[in-house]
Design a protein around this nucleic acid. Structure first.
Lengths: 131, 131
DNA sequence: CGGCAACTGTAGTATTTTCTACATATCAGT
DNA sequence: ACTGATATGTAGAAAATACTACAGTTGCCG
């Protein structure tokens, strides 16, 4: 319902990464060989569901994403958290840290990111309510 | 191919959380109302694909997961990283930290987890080769 | 203008997923 | 052995997904 199929997601990924493309350009960036008409059929479905919009330029339709990347990202994250981590986002992140291979540099950056987030939280707590 | 459909994933989730169940028990834990025969059909597909096994106890079949939770978790993580973060697991974790709501406590725990992981890395570097 | 190349439009099909309905089998207790 | 509750077996069908083939349209360039 609110989650993309494999094919839909592949198209959305490409449209998120490039502002506006016509079918043949999407086709060229597709992860595997796909016939032009098959791709256009997926675009048609995405259009009907309201996930993309198109406008004609010259003789071709150019497609762009309407559904935001971030919203889809959060839905997929929630889904993954629900299935694997009792719905906990923190649990999901923890399991990813435990199971994914990360270089020392990457771990360091994640630590800094968490620290930044926690001080941001502190600031909000102090300055959030009008004094 | 190697990724579960929505329905399959829901069943696997339940089987991962409980060792071995018969259809009516899975049905009771299912996230929404589902008819017994519909559920059994999903089990049949999972059985054919080799994701679950069953054995008869009394007059009922009891099902258990064959495909490991962790493998499925990693596949889904990779898929998500591929679509949203150029395939980078660290990028995925970073984006989750940035966009998900986390309590100060959770952030603190994640920091500790990252620290633990980085010292574990250090230990492996020092002690990995047989002395 | 004539013709090629690039795109679109549409119809039809195969496969997968999901669900429903109903018939059959088994066990427990009386 | 009869009955009710619990399970299984199977046939069929609706809907979504994914693909193929081909005809029609548009714009450009010689």
């Amino acid at each position: 319902m609110s989650s993309f199929t494999t094919g839909e997601l592949e198209v959305m990924k490409i449209l998120w990464e490039h502002r506006e493309l016509k079918p043949s350009q999407i086709q060229a960036k597709y992860s595997r060989r796909i016939k032009n008409a098959a791709l256009r059929f997926q675009l048609k479905i995405l259009l009907e569901k309201g996930h993309v919009a198109r406008r004609r330029i010259g003789r071709a339709y150019y497609y762009k994403a309407l559904t935001a990347r971030q919203g889809a990202f959060k839905r997929m994250a929630r889904r993954m958290a629900r299935v694997y981590c009792q719905g906990s986002a923190a649990g999901l992140i923890a399991e990813l840290i435990k199971t994914e291979k990360l270089t020392p540099d990457e771990i360091q950056q994640l630590r800094q990111l968490a620290e930044a987030k926690s001080s941001e939280k502190t600031l909000k707590k102090k300055g959030g309510k009008k004094t």
